[in-house]
Nucleic acid binder design. Structure first.
Lengths: 213, 213
DNA sequence: AACTTGTCCTGTCATGCCGTCAGCTTACCG
DNA sequence: CGGTAAGCTGACGGCATGACAGGACAAGTT
């Protein structure tokens, strides 16, 4: 699917080359999760990978370019989030379990890709189309199926609210909560209580009803 | 209230000095809204302010330090958001108007401080306590009074949900929507429709009821 | 084993930003 | 008018960036 891996100057990378390239990406990932984005320097990444800055520039145009690479990889990975909603039931107690599992899975994914998602979020907010697209791909893997679920459950009641808006709000909320869970802690909401609360919101949003006890 | 403005090396700044300082801050603000945060350089800010880099370092330890200054100024300003909730009624049609005005005011504030809030959000997500504190101050100016509102309106019905969690979720949602309104557009939610939808969510969250038509 | 070929890495260099300092200019005051 | 403190900048060592050419290396060929 992806074409051959190429260096900046157009050569095709061989086995050894791909290894160093990957090592650089791994080190950059590590770097991103330990230093502020603004302070991540090419020379540090190169040093950590046991190579020279020049090598880095052979494979990536700059730090941002390499970050995009990592982000795209992660976006591919986010496809798995679809299964948290697709074909799930929203009726009664089962429905609330669906909601709980969705919240759980989403938060886990975000936590796992914490550092890179921070940068993607920043880039998207700054208006960079490439980062925006990647962010949408991640969010859509949940928002897409979720919109369908809202539509299906809403037909029975009223049509006053836009399913896309509801689903979008819920996903935004989840993303925000994942990125800033500390904020909730400072509001006196314990990490333990955060998940049930979010699950409740999601259930309410999708079904329009209060959950069964 | 704030002590005398001082230079990095401890001198007190006079009238002229404060002017340059302010000009530097203004230029930095401008810079932040036109360039990616990662690419904002001291030398560019200085050039734009018609001064030299050395002058910048006389008043701020580094770019981050100056950004914090701007952010704190904005946080002070956010106190006005309290009035969007404090002493407002949540009953009936008036309640929905309250909700609409809150959404409107919050989005306006965020849009106005767009660029600086992006950086604050990033800093908070990266675990920087100074940025986190500032972000909480802004969010709390709404979340605080809102929690009270939720408490007051919930006493009449059930106590199953934590008011702080509800209010926190709503504020998080608003912040997320403000920062990434483009995402909603790409979900097919027009900017015009976004506000009413958010207002609906807020009203629902606070009162637990559907709004009167 | 010597040779060939194409991939891979790095030494080096020019450029530009960072952050600091000494020292010059300006403003204020007695 | 001289003293004092504020205000600004030129200049400098240090480091990151980004480009290039040439050497190291692996793998196959003779």
């Amino acid at each position: 699917m992806t074409g051959q891996v190429r260096t900046v100057d157009g050569r095709v990378a061989g086995r050894r080359g791909q290894e160093t390239r990957q090592k650089l990406l791994d080190c950059l990932r590590e770097m991103l999760s330990t230093s502020p984005y603004r302070d991540v320097k090419v020379i540090d990444v190169a040093r950590m990978a046991g190579t020279s800055p020049a090598t880095f520039y052979q494979y990536f145009p700059d730090v941002e370019g390499a970050v995009l690479e990592i982000a795209e990889e992660m976006a591919e990975d986010s496809g798995g989030l679809k299964e948290l909603v697709d074909g799930k039931s929203w009726a009664g107690k089962t429905g609330f379990t669906t909601s709980e599992e969705l919240v759980d899975g989403f938060l886990a994914f975000w936590r796992k890709n914490d550092a890179i998602l921070r940068v993607v979020t920043l880039g998207a907010a700054e208006g960079d189309k490439r980062f925006f697209k990647i962010r949408m791909k991640v969010l859509n893997s949940v928002a897409g199926p979720l919109t369908e679920a809202v539509k299906a459950n809403q037909a029975k009641t009223d049509k006053s609210v836009d399913p896309a808006a509801v689903s979008g709000s819920l996903v935004s909320l989840l993303a925000s909560a994942a990125e800033h869970s500390k904020a909730f802690t400072s509001w006196g909401v314990k990490v333990k209580d955060l998940k049930p609360n979010l699950a409740l919101q999601v259930y309410l949003g999708v079904t329009g009803k209060k959950p069964p006890k």
